[in-house]
Amino acid sequence: MSDQVRIIRFKVADRVFHVFIMVTFLIQSVTGMGRLLYHTNWGKAVVGIFGGYEGASTVHNTVGILMIIGFVIHIIYILAKVEWKSWRKSLLDADSLVPRPADAVQFGQQIRWFFGLGPRPSFDRWTYWEKFDYWAVFWGMPLLGISGVLLMYPLAASRIMPGWVLNVMVLFHRAEALLAMLYIFIIHFTIGHLRRGMFPMNEGMFAGSVELEKEKEEKALWIARLQEEGRLEQAKVLGPAPWYRTAYFIFGYTALAVGLYLLLIIIVYRNYIEWH
């Protein structure tokens, strides 16, 4: 691992944001599922960890507000990162997460490759599924955040809208939360852990750097671009320290275990989940 040439992919701030959303998302998942399944023994036991239904609600609400603050900070952060003088280039070049026409083309190529109709596409720094993962948060966070805040303050909310809108908000909050959990625990985890070359774990998001040889296969356009622009040498970094690697393996696998456990619970208790 340490012999491999590694190049930087995520800055410290990006990794901090990821760890932040991991921790808060899992806390919200556990407290949310516990309350959703409160009429079952499992729900009562989980809620009991947080000191009963009220306690779990307090944790859920507090962490929810933290998440919203984190999301706002992230938006300020990315807006500050854009070079507004040359915004067109800054937003639309290959180092940006903004979807480009090339993503649609690569998606088409990938589907063709799935069915043996073409060669495997080579990607740039961010692939279309990585962009989807990123932008999906921008759909889920406002929906969960707005419905959550309205439900947190129902008296104030019913002053600006009819009270029965909260019935609909409960549905939105639960359904969107289930979608987010199922997506992360099934699809995000599979892509991050089970893909070839990723097992046992795609360490990029924790280590911040990725192996150059592996990326040459999948993200050939990115490496080629780095070489062309003469930035490859300066992108090379040292691998993660052993203690740090141990720490993020423990952390990552704990998160994975919690997620898979919740997935199991969703499957087992599927008939007890009422999203409305």
Binding site: W129, V168, A175, L179, Y183, I186, I187, T190, R195, W275
Partner: peptide, 24 residues
């Protein structure tokens, strides 16, 4: 709203589930 969320969940999971399954 229920139908909308239902289709969103089923659609997203079906699409990306298949995508990931074929891929892996």
């Amino acid at each position: 709203s229920n139908w909308f969320m239902y289709l969103l969940i089923v659609g997203t999971l079906a699409f990306f589930g298949l995508h990931t399954l074929i891929w892996v």
